[in-house]
Design a protein around this nucleic acid. Structure first.
Length: 111
DNA sequence: GACATGACGATTT
DNA sequence: GAAATCGCCATGT
């Protein structure tokens, strides 16, 4: 690990950091913003590296269904829901309520 | 250097 | 309409 390939991770982190409070985005949206159309996996993978950075609201990043797939990667499986609820995002059974309403797409919002 | 895996998405069968 | 499969790129072994 000499040259930390944060190249694409850094981009993801930057976008995630830009997510307004009370909003959520999807892996695909971030991927599309970075030009990685169908590389949503990489986005999720980058989030795995989010532990290397601080202030990465990974709880605001969910899959296209609004499902908190990454909740299991948090300190606690419920931490993600707690954080989202705390910010005004209603979560039920691991799913974001009114997901599309809270959806925040960088390609459109930052247009 | 090859194989397997990973917090997903879209497409095809 | 649901299930299975490919694609996508990087990381770890």
């Amino acid at each position: 690990m000499k040259k930390e390939h944060q190249n694409f991770f850094h981009d993801v982190f930057e976008v995630v950091k830009l997510i307004p409070k009370g909003k959520v985005t999807t892996y695909g949206a971030i991927g599309a913003y970075l030009g990685l159309k169908s590389s949503a996996r990489m986005v999720g993978w980058a989030m795995n590296a989010s532990h290397a950075e601080k202030g990465i609201p990974a709880h605001r990043v969910v899959n296209s269904k609004g499902l908190l797939t990454g909740k299991h990667h948090f300190e606690t499986p419920t931490k993600m829901e707690e954080l989202l609820k705390k910010e005004g995002v209603k979560v039920k059974d691991g799913c974001v309520v009114e997901f599309t309403k809270h959806l925040w797409i960088p390609s459109k919002e930052l247009l």
